[in-house]
């Protein structure tokens, strides 16, 4: 093989590695990236089953039901709509009714959200930032008290 040929071959090899990596990134971006949705988004838009979703909102007061085992169901609300969630496993230390939560998973049949991860962390005043941003963007945030507007009263409606 000529020197030029060898050089072309090496450059070709490098380009193909980078191309494969880029293809991997693009595939992964469309498949394995979770989009943030509020309960209202889920009720109104109904994402495709199998699409990974981060569902953020508050745990609706009075909605947490533990069965005899380790499966927990609760509703996540953004004070307008609420979505039932089921999760098997240990809930984080700071999972509380009326507190912010982010559940990651997929939407199952009957609009039941199957969570495989539940996040509620940091401290007792914690609201996941996505939830706060979302509520602020939709005017559901009580700026004076730094908390969601009327979280308890309205959330139970749906």
């Amino acid at each position: 093989m000529t020197r030029k040929g060898k050089r072309l071959l090496s450059i070709g090899g490098m380009v193909s590695v980078v191309a494969v990596a880029a293809a991997l990134v693009l595939t992964a971006m469309s498949d394995s990236v979770a989009y943030f949705n509020s309960p209202t988004d889920i009720v109104e838009k109904t994402p495709a089953p199998g699409q990974r979703i981060r569902l953020g909102g508050m745990v609706e007061t009075g909605s947490v039901v533990r069965d005899q085992g380790e499966t927990v169901t609760f509703r996540v609300t953004d004070t307008i709509q609420s979505v039932p969630v089921t999760y098997t496993g240990i809930l984080p230390d700071l999972f509380r009714e009326g507190q912010g939560v982010v559940a990651e998973g997929t939407l199952g049949p009957d609009h039941l959200f199957l969570a495989d991860t539940v996040l509620a962390k940091h401290d007792e005043n914690y609201m996941p930032k996505e939830v706060v941003d979302d509520l602020k963007a939709r005017g559901l945030w009580d700026h004076d008290n730094s908390r969601p507007k009327a979280a308890d009263e309205k959330g139970a409606g749906v």
Binding site: A28, M29, D31, S32, V33, Y35, F36, E104, E130, D133
Partner: peptide, 12 residues
């Protein structure tokens, strides 16, 4: 808002 977590890095 999206979250890029373990699945993404496992794939890439």
């Amino acid at each position: 808002k999206i979250s890029v977590g373990e699945p993404f890095f496992n794939l890439t």
